[in-house]
Simulated scan of single mutants.
Amino acid sequence: MATSAVGPIFGVLGSCMGCMVFVESIAKQEPSAMNLMTFSTFLFIATHGLFFTSKFFTVKNQIPLKGYVKTVSMFFIVNVVNNQALNFHVPVPLHIIFRSGSLLATLLLSVFLVGKKYSMRKYVSVVAITVGIIICTLATSSQEKNSGLSMEEASKHYKEWAIGIGMLTFALLASAYLAICQQQMYEVYGKHPDEAMFITHFVSLPLFLIMGGDILSAADKLSASKPYPILSSFLPVPSLWVDLFASCILQYLCIKYVYQLNSRVDSLTVTLVVTLRKFLSLIVSIIYFKNPFTPTHWLGAVLVFAGTLAFADIWGTNAAGKPTAEKKKQ
């Protein structure tokens, strides 16, 4: 592997995993803050792009704004729905596993919307991913039913959890369609990742007005959180605001490093690194936050991640990193 790719690989693993730690910390302490968290991330990335990418709109866009319409719409929906699902009692480990099933949705939409054809191995991989997600979902469902709550509380808890799963399912399909929209946009206008990163976040900001009341309410709750321990002696900053700011920085770095990695190595290596990041995030979530994870969950998780790697043909590449004959024929 080229030395130039080492930095982005560690950047992806470190920043993306770190971001998930702060996101889960916020979700556990104040689950109603998910819209605020999404808005803050968009605002941070848009502000950074305004200064360094657009240079206050003095740099001409390579892609016209009309080319971003579908991409921005789907990007906004996917991010909001994914984060909002955490507000419906969806455990973060299950959230990670669900989002790891994006290949399933991508394959389905690619077949039905774009007319692509895939080898039998890829269909088997997707079946493994699907079965893994179902196993994890059913295992979590069983935990929800036996949560030790009263019948009325358990019923409400279970209904909210079911809504969260529905939201994740919708987001899974929407993210696959987003990938198709981005691919079509790049085919027409060329690849301009920094510009696309800035525009998709900046243009989405006015859409958060529809949830302004919820965002302001969450901001008040974050302001009421206990002071951050390290800073409390000389600067009583609410701890959840520190967590939110840290998650914004790490989310920006995560996206930036993925873009860098994508420009320096082949797509298979990117898939491997992103899959490894998700698996390590899952381990951190289970150990650090003591999330319940049964042997049944592990079985489902192994199926999901193994299916993802098999789909990407990680084991079907030779030492030089060139695709096998089967890959070339596709």
Rank of each mutant, 00 (worst) to 15 (best):
Y68A: 06
S32F: 01
K66M: 07
G101K: 06
T137N: 05
G14N: 12
S155I: 03
K70L: 15
L107F: 05
H48K: 14
V12T: 09
T71P: 01
E153Q: 14
I129S: 01
G148V: 11
F10H: 08
L149R: 15
L107C: 10
A27K: 09
C136E: 08
L43W: 06
R121H: 11
S155F: 06
V111P: 03
L65T: 06
I134F: 07
V114P: 02
L43D: 00
F98I: 04
V21P: 00
N82G: 01
L36Y: 02
K66C: 04
S100T: 01
G115Y: 04
Y118T: 11
G148H: 11
N146M: 05
V12G: 04
F75L: 10
C16S: 15
S110D: 08
I45E: 09
I135T: 04
F88D: 03
L103G: 15
Y123H: 14
A27V: 05
S141Y: 10
C136S: 11
S54Q: 08
P8T: 07
V78H: 00
P93E: 03
L43C: 05
F76E: 06
M37T: 15
E30F: 01
H48G: 13
T137M: 09
F52K: 11
K122V: 06
S142K: 14
H95P: 08
F98D: 00
V23P: 08
F42V: 06
S25A: 15
K156S: 15
G67Y: 03
Q62C: 13
P8V: 08
F88M: 06
F57N: 07
V69A: 15
A27D: 07
K28V: 10
A46T: 03
F52I: 02
M37G: 12
M17H: 00
T53W: 12
V126P: 00
I26M: 09
F112Q: 00
M17Q: 12
G132N: 01
F51K: 07
L36I: 05
S40G: 06
P91Y: 07
P93V: 02
N35H: 13
N82K: 10
P8E: 08
K116T: 07
L50Y: 14
S142V: 10
V78W: 02
V69T: 13
M20F: 11
K116C: 01
Q143Y: 08
L13H: 05
G18R: 04
K156I: 14
T58P: 07
K116E: 14
F52V: 06
R121A: 12
C136Y: 01
V69K: 12
S147A: 15
L43I: 02
L50C: 14
S100F: 03
K122W: 03
R99Q: 06
T137L: 04
V80R: 01
L65V: 08
F88G: 05
G49W: 11
S155R: 12
S141T: 12
V69L: 14
N83S: 10
A33R: 11
T106E: 03
S32G: 09
K156G: 07
V72M: 09
K122N: 11
A33F: 09
G115E: 09
L138W: 03
A139P: 01
S73Y: 04
V127L: 15
S25N: 13
S25F: 13
